[in-house]
Write a protein that binds this DNA or RNA. Sequence first.
DNA 1: AATGAATGAGTGTTCATTCAT
DNA 2: GATGAATGAACACTCATTCAT
Lengths: 190, 190, 190, 190
Amino acid sequence: MSTDVRHKVRDAAIALFAQKGVKATTVRDIARAAGVSEGALYRHWPSKEELAADLFAAEYTAMSQSLRDAAGHGPAPERLRRVIHHAFHLAEAAPDRTRFLLLSQHESLPLVPQGQETPVDVICGIVADGIAEGSIVPADRDALSHIVIGAIVLNVQSQVYGRQKAPLATLAGPIADAILNGISRTGAGQ
Amino acid sequence: MSTDVRHKVRDAAIALFAQKGVKATTVRDIARAAGVSEGALYRHWPSKEELAADLFAAEYTAMSQSLRDAAGHGPAPERLRRVIHHAFHLAEAAPDRTRFLLLSQHESLPLVPQGQETPVDVICGIVADGIAEGSIVPADRDALSHIVIGAIVLNVQSQVYGRQKAPLATLAGPIADAILNGISRTGAGQ
Amino acid sequence: MSTDVRHKVRDAAIALFAQKGVKATTVRDIARAAGVSEGALYRHWPSKEELAADLFAAEYTAMSQSLRDAAGHGPAPERLRRVIHHAFHLAEAAPDRTRFLLLSQHESLPLVPQGQETPVDVICGIVADGIAEGSIVPADRDALSHIVIGAIVLNVQSQVYGRQKAPLATLAGPIADAILNGISRTGAGQ
Amino acid sequence: MSTDVRHKVRDAAIALFAQKGVKATTVRDIARAAGVSEGALYRHWPSKEELAADLFAAEYTAMSQSLRDAAGHGPAPERLRRVIHHAFHLAEAAPDRTRFLLLSQHESLPLVPQGQETPVDVICGIVADGIAEGSIVPADRDALSHIVIGAIVLNVQSQVYGRQKAPLATLAGPIADAILNGISRTGAGQ
DNA sequence: AATGAATGAGTGTTCATTCAT
DNA sequence: GATGAATGAACACTCATTCAT
């Protein structure tokens, strides 16, 4: 069944892209790891580049959904706190997917179709709400959002690359405190 | 003169690597853009990969120096504020170099020789000083540092990729305020 | 069919190696002459050098078999006589293969896997038998063998390179007479 | 002085050609080993190939002279015996030169200028004399000569390549005995 | 005369993609 | 639909030769 091929290829490709990057992974690598033929891959995706872009977009928008769900409702600072915790949780639960997203962002991000909601959009949205409701300092919305995103991405990266030994779960609290302390209007993150 | 070739190749290669990445840039591209022969390149670097790694390491450690110099002396929060301003200044002054560093970090960072001081080390050092002197909250040193680094990197990236239209110079103040507000002990960035 | 490619490449490569040597023959030459693509060659051999070594070993050990079969049974001098005749026959019947073996011996001989029987081994074996049975003079086995081998190789070479115009078939008898006269114990070649 | 360069290049080139063959030896290899610049080489020879051909021809004709001198005068069988002994002596005394001649014969022999006397000519001459004077059996002159040459070349090669462990000096007598026994008319080598 | 950096055509090899089976 | 052998345009890299100094 074709879904079978798609799943096997997706998992194999993400693992390989995460290890070596898209350019350094060959179609043969993927086919072998997935246990399918090289030709079969081309029945589901038009090219290796499109496979990579497709997988990236899928993972990226799935993460978007997941973060929005995790944010829930309530004041912006509380929602951001939950987003930070959840992002760290996702990164630790699926290191391959995380490495893939980190590694491929520069080549694949520009190919994500316009209109798809991204994790960046989710966080920018929450920050915008916070500014509107007065719970977040009235500064440039994107600049503040990228402080939050940067705290997440760089700490994840630091762990993926082995500099940070402590589990992200234990760091999430203090990191959220610092960030929210910095951007909340009342000076308290909760 | 040999310095001539080195300089021309370096500039051409950084520009091309910044546009297309190392893998997608061919040796012929570089040689043509630099106005030298392909063979000449191999008199100065043993391979394309080593050229890329060498340029990355050089720019990365130069940035390290530059940030350390800009930090100057005084309480850690003030030094961090100056680092943030200077990092934004560097990014805007040399967009090619910035794109190159952002794009190549995942492949070239592991190849930077151990013992070289990196921008990450510089910021971690200041944060450690701040924790020791009591001007920064006593949390995980690396986690706090990566909040600062993340704020810098993601805002730079956001501008390089065109999402952020405002010049970084105007954002530096508010961003530094938020970050320092979040991690300083007295609750004030200065 | 894969056997198809292997055969076409083998024949083309032997002809080209025989004319210009392995180093001076390009993979492009071989592919063109064989009527296959360059890539196809690499599905069957890992490199040009391994192709050359493989072809050499195959021809060399095939000649070994062929000489051993031709030697048949009986007193050593008679077997050697048949070997000389057969070697000359092989050289005249397949001049490309002969030129290839002569030209490539210095680079490919060291790569023939240990344990494979070579034409040298065949002749040394017969000479050893002859010494044991008393039909050949009791001198250094390898030295005597290389007299026989030398008579074959140099006369073949002399013809392949055009110095010797007479067909080897007519020279085989006198050459065998002289050699066997020289190394047989009774002083008679049969 | 130019003779200086010529000598240093000649010695270095012969050693390298003997180890790796002409094709696998680079001009840079030679220049480095000789302690001269690459350009200097081109002031004395027009190309690497001509250098190789020139060195081959020089060594080849020098060997020719040397063998003719060693042959001396007297009946052909005695002269051949002295040639065999001397050839083995030369091979053992200068292994580099020997390996160079063996390795390069197929590419360089055709380039030796016509009219130069070669070692092959020397031996053919002696054999022709022997046939004329009745000391050697009246068979094809070249065929008989190549028996002698083959005995020399293959035994030398066998030692150079390590199959034959015994020193050639101790094998020269028995080998000469066998050969001369085979081709002399009286049935005695002396 | 000597140097050695520069040249650039040519090499072996790879790999995304196609297509006969 | 699936296969995997075949294709051939690139690619990184080498090296004989030239020539400004």
